[in-house]
Design a protein around this nucleic acid. Structure first.
Lengths: 245, 245
DNA sequence: CGTCACCCCAATGTATACACCGATCCCGGC
DNA sequence: GCCGGGATCGGTGTATACATTGGGGTGACG
């Protein structure tokens, strides 16, 4: 793997998993030293992060981790809704056979996973991911994927703010099952309706969260060295309004 | 301006205006020599082009100008439709005063521009761009912009395949006027309907084009040197099926 | 004559050195 | 004591040198 890929993947993961929090400065020398790569591939990694929207230039001096907020969640879903609806409509229109019926059955049995151990929950998330991939493959539109990719990236970041609520997961499983059933039946209107229901409930769940401070998993301690010494105030309440730049 | 910005802007312009055609290899040494910058900023420019979808890695060795095709136009509009509809709905929902009424009047008088000289047509395109910007500002959703940006980039590239048809421009002006009127009146349903009509007609017009070979404006002759010597066959019919990679 | 393997080279990936720019801090003046 | 200007310094932007890898060409073998 290229060094720039490694740097990009690591930084991206650090940002999505809140080891790097909004506002953290991604200094080239510092990060290149931490990740063990030179500045050249690191610069390429930073460019990609900026293109993805995970980082933003900071007043002409370096790049900082971009802000994310509850307001941003609402904005995110305003774009996600039409895109996902278009995706399911296209998936039906393309009329690929697909494995939607099988996926629906798996969702029907998902409560076992959710009530199980941590691996079970991971398995459920994997199942959701498989449905997404199946929809993507059925829609077969590279531009749709290109538009959804940054949305999903930001969403992955926001999800870390939400506690895994078993009740919500069970409801989510039922909603996904309904989507998969409609897709399997080739009913575009129903699939879109089910998707709208699901997205509405997802957003509502996220917005009703108590805004738990992300746990900033230790592991990138050296990365946070510069900012940690300055003892930053609790960040989550802070950058709630600093978006939309 | 930074050298990387200059390189990116120039290459982007060359691709959109078909001076660089799909399949052309963007070699680092060759392009850095042509644009008078070093390889480092040129690499950053290429990274951005790849992120935008204007270029794509070529079997692990260099990047090539990405393909665009009639099939891609249809895919493009499949994504553009829900995004633009969402944009006008958000623009109305945000309930900003906006200058939509004034823009509608300008569109009503647009036939003068269209029937005029070349500057007049440029003025009409600028007017369309102003409406887009006004909608963007009213929608006020950075993620929507992020999703629309690559779509618009590809669209700008495709438009060069279409002849400027005065009749179509007149119809387009009326459609835009209707959109602006609906937005000015705060009627989201009507605005979306007008947008759907406009996009349908735009797509239909593009698809009915005789597929004119783009004029590959001379000016980047040195850039095309490597491929020009090999005398490439007419490219437009060729890359009609090579997309979706 | 076709095919396969090996070698050479060119282009990319990476590292590092240098230049320039903005930011910060200190000192002097008001 | 406060404000402004300049100097210093860290950091980014750029250029170039080096390593490495993949591809093409050529030659030999079947």
């Amino acid at each position: 793997m290229r060094a720039s890929d490694h740097a990009h993947a690591t930084l991206r993961c650090d940002i999505i998993e809140w080891r790097l929090v909004p506002g953290d400065l991604l200094a080239e020398v510092e990060q290149s030293a931490r990740l063990g790569v030179s500045r050249t591939p690191l610069r390429e990694a930073l460019s990609r992060l900026v293109a993805e929207g995970l980082a933003a230039p900071h007043s002409g001096r370096g790049v900082v981790v971009s802000a994310i907020s509850l307001e941003a969640v609402a904005d995110l879903f305003e774009v996600r809704l039409p895109l996902e609806c278009a995706a399911v409509r296209l998936a039906v229109a393309r009329n690929r056979p697909g494995a939607f019926a099988a996926l629906a059955e798996e969702f029907a049995e998902a409560p076992r996973l959710i009530d199980g151990d941590d691996d079970g929950q991971k398995g459920y998330y994997a199942l959701v991911s498989r449905l997404d991939q199946e929809i993507d493959a059925a829609a077969a539109n590279p531009y749709l994927l290109q538009a959804q990719k940054p949305i999903r990236t930001h969403l992955a970041r926001v999800r870390r703010l939400a506690r895994d609520n078993p009740a919500r997961l069970l409801a989510s499983a039922r909603e996904h099952e309904q989507i998969a059933l409609a897709l399997g039946a080739g009913n575009a209107d129903l699939a879109e309706a089910a998707m709208r229901v699901h997205l509405h409930n997802s957003l509502h769940h996220l917005l009703s969260q108590p805004l738990a401070t992300p746990s900033r998993t230790t592991g990138a301690a050296s990365a946070a060295g510069a900012t940690a010494t300055t003892d930053p105030p609790p960040l989550v309440p802070n950058h709630l309004e600093e978006h939309h730049g």
